[in-house]
Design a protein around this nucleic acid. Structure first.
Length: 488
RNA sequence: GGCGCCAUCGUCUAGAGGCCCAGGACGCCGCCCUUUCAAGGCGGAGAUCGCGGGUUCGAAUCCCGCUGGCGCUACCA
């Protein structure tokens, strides 16, 4: 049997970190077995439909490198891959169930349903549809009312009133459900669109999906699905419910916890490689020590057996650490390219674009072990690109010269002299000259370097000073040193 | 309220009866290196394995109960 999995998001917004983890696991499973991974858009809820979402979902998958074999845009043997374009299929399935007596039309108004629910909740009873339309008489009555108001009907599945059904979940032990707790759920809405329950399985059947991976929030609706598979005579796929991803407070990860869209992480300067690695480890592990795995290693080792059952809190700090690891391990030329892209967007508007790639290439080795996120780049490097340094006198003096600005001024003056006397402008020449100066004047080398640092870069935290000065060049450094002295 | 899932350091996890008075990683704290900041090296604190009962010569690992957290309970997915 060839393994075919899919990512079937509802286009209601950008790709959520939780959904994308499910996509990642599904992709991994398919790739591990040399099978196929498909993308299918489940746009059956017109009220929440967001037309921009489909492109965002596709872009998010591409950014993470989750390529799909069939889906919108690229087609495939079971096209179309968008549910709103497949409505006759669901209608036909519903008709079959109607004909078999496994489903019935329900003409109840939403007002009646709401009132019913309210009443049940008030009495502390489980809210369930009362099956008024399940028998002929009730249905006729409801239908009369509905036609008077020109309302149409929904189709409900007729669940067995008793019995039990058990799910053999691929990551959990068997889960048994009491059918008496179920109600007759809607499979076809009054607007003619199917609900998720009907739509996904009709498509999975047609598209020959072998494994369904989804979030644990679906576990409680699985007994309905099992019933539906049976009534439709579908062979159920392997079903695996993945643990939910939690926010720091232990509730399901959502907007109020901060970033939930993969694009928010991208914009914060996370690398797709790092997010891939990190997400691959939320709910799955290789062994007792491996943290860093390449895409290929994930594909090679991934298995449903090692998916954990317990929910996981999303640990952004660890993701940031991992991002740093990826930044440090990335080949310099590749990193330089990403840094250049990032600078184009983060540098002040008056810095000419495109940024000087040669310059970026020289800077990259100086900052690569100092940054965890691409977003930190600009603060480390802006002084290479602009002469508008904004620092205060306090920054310049630092702790060492706070009480004696005159000494700082003198130090700067002597440093300027020492450095202007240099005939070769190199970092070791600079260091030798300034160390000699400190020695000669009885200054702490660190104190001297610190004033020079702020004078030349405008910042207290910078890449290595002498390398930076070498790149900046003699002329610019001298000018900045003099400007600094004038401030005192 | 009902149904269901889950339960090992703050967090992610390893652990499928003796190898565990519990291993790794992030974070945290020291020290070293050092021109700032990092990175790196070394070391440390941190979990009586939610609680209570069993089973067993022996339990984090099996069983039962409890508690807690979470999820679902829509003509949303």
């Amino acid at each position: 049997m060839t393994v075919r999995t899919r990512y079937a998001p509802s286009p209601t917004g950008g790709p959520h970190i939780g959904n994308i983890r499910t996509a990642l696991f599904s992709w991994l499973l398919a790739r591990h077995h040399g099978g196929q991974f498909l993308l299918r858009i489940e746009d059956t809820d017109q009220k929440r439909y967001d037309p921009a979402a489909v492109d965002l979902i596709i872009e998010g998958l591409a950014w993470l490198g989750l390529d799909y074999d069939e889906g919108p845009g690229i087609g495939g043997p079971y096209a179309p891959y968008v549910q709103s374009e497949r409505r006759e299929l669901y209608r036909a399935a519903a008709d079959r169930l109607l004909a078999q007596g496994d489903a019935y039309e329900c003409w109840c108004s939403s007002e009646r349903l709401d009132a019913l629910r309210a009443e049940q909740t008030r009495k502390k009873l489980p809210p369930k549809y009362d099956r008024r339309c399940r028998d002929e008489a009730g249905r006729a009555a409801s239908r009369g009312e509905a036609e008077a108001e020109a309302r149409s009907c929904v189709v409900r599945f007729a669940t067995p009133l008793s019995g039990a059904i058990t799910l053999h979940d691929a990551v959990r032990s068997d889960v048994t459900f009491d059918l008496a707790t179920l109600d007759d759920f809607v499979i076809l809405k009054s607007d003619g669109y199917p609900t998720y329950h009907l739509a996904y399985m009709v498509d999975d059947e047609i598209m020959r999906i072998s494994h369904v991976l989804r979030g644990e929030e679906w576990l409680s609706s699985t007994p309905r699905h099992l019933l539906l598979y049976g009534a439709l005579r579908f062979e159920p796929p392997v079903i695996a419910h993945l643990p939910v991803i939690l926010g720091p407070d232990g509730s399901k990860l959502s907007k109020r916890h901060g970033a939930t869209s993969v694009f928010e992480y991208r914009d914060q300067g996370f690398l797709p490689e790092a997010l891939f690695n990190f997400l691959g480890l939320v709910g799955w592990s290789l062994d007792d020590k491996t943290e860093i795995l390449s895409r290929e290693e994930f594909v090679q080792h991934f298995s449903l057996e090692r998916v954990v059952r317990n929910p996981a809190v999303f640990n952004v700090e660890k993701l940031a650490w991992m991002n740093g690891v990826y930044i440090r391990e990335m080949p310099l030329d590749q990193l330089a390219e990403r840094i250049a892209d990032r600078l184009e967007r983060d540098l002040p508007a008056n810095v000419p674009r495109p940024v000087d790639r040669g310059l970026v290439a020289r800077i990259t080795p100086l900052i690569r072990e100092r940054i965890k996120l691409l977003s930190e780049v600009v603060d480390y490097t802006d002084f290479f690109f602009t002469d508008e340094l904004r620092y205060s006198v306090e920054d310049l003096l630092g702790k060492a010269y706070r009480e004696r600005p005159a000494d700082a001024r003198e130090a700067l003056g002597r440093a300027t002299d020492a450095v202007s006397a240099l005939d070769t402008w190199s970092h070791d020449g600079l260091e030798a000259a300034l160390r000699a100066l400190a020695e000669e004047r009885g200054m702490k080398a660190g104190d001297l370097f610190s004033v020079v640092r702020v004078a030349v870069t405008g910042r207290r935290i910078t890449p290595p000073l002498f390398e930076s000065m070498e790149i900046l060049g003699q002329e610019r450094c001298l000018r900045r040193l003099r400007e600094a002295a004038e401030k005192l």
